[in-house]
Amino acid sequence: MTPYEQWVALLTLMRKEIRRYTRIWSQTLLPSAITMSLYFLIFGSLIGSRIGEMGGVSYMEFVVPGLIMMAIVTNSYANVVSSFFGSKFNDSIEELLVSPTPNHIILLGFVSGGVSRGMLVAVIVTIVSSLFVELHIHSYAVVIAVVALTSILFSLCGLINAVFANTFDDIAIVPTFVLTPLTYLGGVFYSLELLPDFWATVSQANPLVYVVNAFRFGVLGVSDVSVGFAFAMIGAFTLVAYLYAAHLLRTGRRLRT
């Protein structure tokens, strides 16, 4: 395909993906707004007012970046895993497989769908959070970079999950038993300084720690880990996920017999 044709194919996939999640907005966009409002209200406003400061800022300010990032992670992942597995389930993935669309465009198309939903939800949750706390962005560059990288990373993870999934249960297992615990243990609600040394060290293996702290640095200017190191880790995780997802599409594992 010529570069222009590849661009058309990419736009087509993006259009398809965006139309999919906007068509079912009550299942894809609304729940995050409601869930995060409850988090802000309960953990930030009601309980947070009794906790006082954390990491040098009010507890409400502390949890907001983590909650926004939690919404980005879950929505990017959920979008790609649902869409790709859905295509596998109803065999419409064959429309793509029989076409000359290159694998990297297929990958970029699905990932851009996940990234756009993650970012849209981030905007919605940020607007909701502004009802509870006034945020002053410390570094727009860091915020944009970490949001982009994180949504790419978890979109890729969603695609890998969808490739291996055989049933709808398989696409719920990872978010429930892996993603949610990692998010809760990734420093969304507490500073790693509160943990005993052993558990603080164990937490270093959790990619969500880097994602949440890098984003918190971008918003508040405070972080439990070095921001440079956090970016290096997110970048490394993203590269590995991209290479593995590209390998899966190239070999056609679970897609071609």
């Binding site: 395909m1 044709e5 590849q6 736009l11 259009r15 398809k16 076409s99």
Partner: peptide, 17 residues
């Protein structure tokens, strides 16, 4: 099956550039 006839055809055309 949840897509319209037009969307199915637009998408397939797009995959061919």
């Amino acid at each position: 099956v949840f897509e319209s006839v037009e969307d199915i055809l637009i998408h397939q055309a797009g995959y061919y550039g």
